[in-house]
Design a protein around this nucleic acid. Structure first.
Lengths: 246, 246
DNA sequence: CGAACTATTGAACTAGGTCAAACCCAGTGG
DNA sequence: CCACTGGGTTTGACCTAGTTCAATAGTTCG
């Protein structure tokens, strides 16, 4: 729909060693095996749901909007953003196909949601979700579980922003994205977001992101060409990320 | 129980201008007016609950502990802490009387909880809370609301850690604490936590915390003596904090 | 091809960190 | 009552990781 499915090569990558592309549009099942609770919940919510296509860089909802709807990403990538008056920006999270969006808001969205790439969403009324949760304890539990997961991720991010160095932040980010995104046997992923988004997610500047990526490439930890990143040395990367996963 | 209730003065503060103390032990009602949903929930949970006294700097639970219990703070101050292998520390949040603790965990606590001061807690089995939520949609909603609030706070903290300067971080912290703690008409509060805890909460070093506080004092924004802080110029403080509250 | 982006790289600068030395109590014991 | 000790705090001097500013280089699209 938005991208061709055949693999492609970049010119610069083929210079040194070919980096084969993976398509950016994937079915939810590929990335996030829907849990039983979700499929039941989603089926029940289906009547009244509607599909929404959002262009690249368009807003899905704004900071402060009444939280009338929530969404599930079918394809594309979304960022949730907090803005300060003087323009400083913090990207709280990147959301991928299968992820929920705006489900944990109170009465207002405290973050804006923007499409990083052209995105297709399934939209549900939050009133309906709340009503369903009132009737069905399983759904309510699942919602609590989702909130707990978000909280855990947010706390990990606080550690990153408060205490990690630039290299550690980049390594953590790549490690995290590699774990969440579809990738080939060599660990190749296609980062949908630009350097500015990455910088605002990691509390760095664009320049530091570039330099640090270049540094990791020089050290042979990753291969890289624009948005394409291939993990060469996962062990080193996880070590740099201070990632207890490995 | 842990502190006398009469107001006290510090010597150093009385040098320049007297800073009258507010007792650190307060009834929950003073700080956090318990919501209707909470009182109902707490009453129902009462059978099976138990009270727990924790000494200063003792752990309430560890990172990775199975999340068997959750707690409500009756008196004292608690910090939730994330630790890295090399000792770097991030204090995720400070919790005050009336606040809940460990309620939003998944199967394991992803943060350790430690008593900043001697603390009294009421302990509830999470199984019981979960069961109550299954039966009572109001409770389930309240739990979602609590998680939503935690998430909102965490996101505000991400903005602080990712994008704010040292002065802005300190100002935000003081502004936040002043809003949450009991304080006199002049905005005087007694910070229960040491500089190290503040530093690890704000992603700074002890030295920077000290220097920045000294700076705010020099500028007449705050009065300060050890743990005592009095907001002199709330308008300036909120402006420095980039706090849209004012 | 040229305009407009985005990414990359280099050089100079600075906010905040590091190291080290006072300082300031609170508690202890002579 | 006072010296001593040990913890947290404060302050100063210096240093560095990361920012800022500026110039270059790909890339995309008309």
């Amino acid at each position: 729909m938005f991208a061709s499915l055949q693999t492609i090569e970049t010119r610069s990558a083929s210079r040194s060693s070919p980096v084969v592309w993976f398509p950016r549009v994937v079915s939810p099942a590929q990335t996030q095996p829907a849990r039983r609770a979700d499929s039941h919940m989603l089926e029940t919510l289906e009547p009244g749901a509607s599909t929404l296509c959002v262009e690249k860089d368009r807003e899905i909802y704004s900071q402060g909007d009444p939280a009338e709807f929530c969404y599930r990403i079918l394809s594309g990538t979304v960022r949730t953003v907090k803005l300060m008056e003087d323009g400083r920006r913090q990207v709280a999270e990147f959301l991928l196909p299968g992820d929920f969006l705006g489900l944990d808001a109170l009465d207002e969205h405290d973050l804006a949601a923007e499409a990083v790439t052209a995105t297709v969403l399934r939209r549900y009324a939050r009133r309906t979700v709340e009503a369903l949760a009132d009737h069905d304890p399983t759904v309510a539990r699942r919602l609590r579980g989702l909130a707990g997961t978000k909280l855990r991720v947010a706390r990990e991010q606080m550690m990153l922003l408060g205490r990690k160095t630039a290299v550690e932040r980049i390594a953590s980010f790549l490690s995290d994205m590699t774990a969440r995104m579809p990738h080939g046997p060599d660990g190749r992923i296609a980062l949908a977001m630009g350097r500015a988004d990455i910088a605002d997610h990691l509390g760095l500047t664009i320049e530091t992101v570039c330099r640090t990526l270049a540094c990791l490439r020089r050290d042979g930890v990753i291969e890289m060409a624009r948005e394409a990143v291939a993990i060469r040395d996962a062990r080193s990367l996880h070590a740099l990320a201070c990632d207890p996963r490995h």
